[in-house]
Design a protein around this nucleic acid. Sequence first.
DNA 1: CGCTTTTGACCTGCGC
DNA 2: GCGCAGGTCAAAAGCG
Length: 194
Amino acid sequence: MERTSAETTLSIDLNTNPMHNASEALKSEPRRNFGSESESNTNNEPDGLIQELNRMRSENKKLHDLLTIVCKNYTEFMQKQSGDEFLCSRKRKSDEIDNLSNIIGNNSCCCDEWSAAGRPKEIKSNVSRVHVRIDPSDTSLVVKDGYQWRKYGQKVTRDNPSPRAYYKCSFAPACPVKKKVQKSATDPSLLVAT
DNA sequence: CGCTTTTGACCTGCGC
DNA sequence: GCGCAGGTCAAAAGCG
């Protein structure tokens, strides 16, 4: 598995936590008061707000274009990578197919599924893999991603001596989202959440 | 008391 | 069809 550096850097955020990102974006945005605290602004400066809105739109467009370029480059990169790595055992092969479909899924999410209005279309398959750097001595398989998870199983797998934990989303009773968390076989300080 | 975690048993898919 | 490995279930225990 020669994927350490590339995957680590590329897995910083593969759309695994859109709500978190949204909140981060809100935090980084200049503070504006839409509530009762600054009613003088909302009533007296409509032109200023419109200008602000236009500015935000142009910024949004720039960011959208930038994201499209990044996604394109990433797709090309991964296609080159997958060309080299599509071999070995059948198990490995199926894993690679999984990864590829994940990558495709992520790209379509980034570049295609998100409309120009900045809203996601229907999420079809949103499987991704995230790597989190942890303390190697830490045995708890917890990835703090802002969501509520309920652990429903743990299993020791053949290819990795550390146990794999299975989590279900407990944010809503009908939430179908699941994730697997396991320490990397090669790097115990790396937690892989799928 | 209700929710979460643990853990052994069971189910299912895949390769041989 | 069989065996193996991964995934899920569910009862018991723990915790706040």
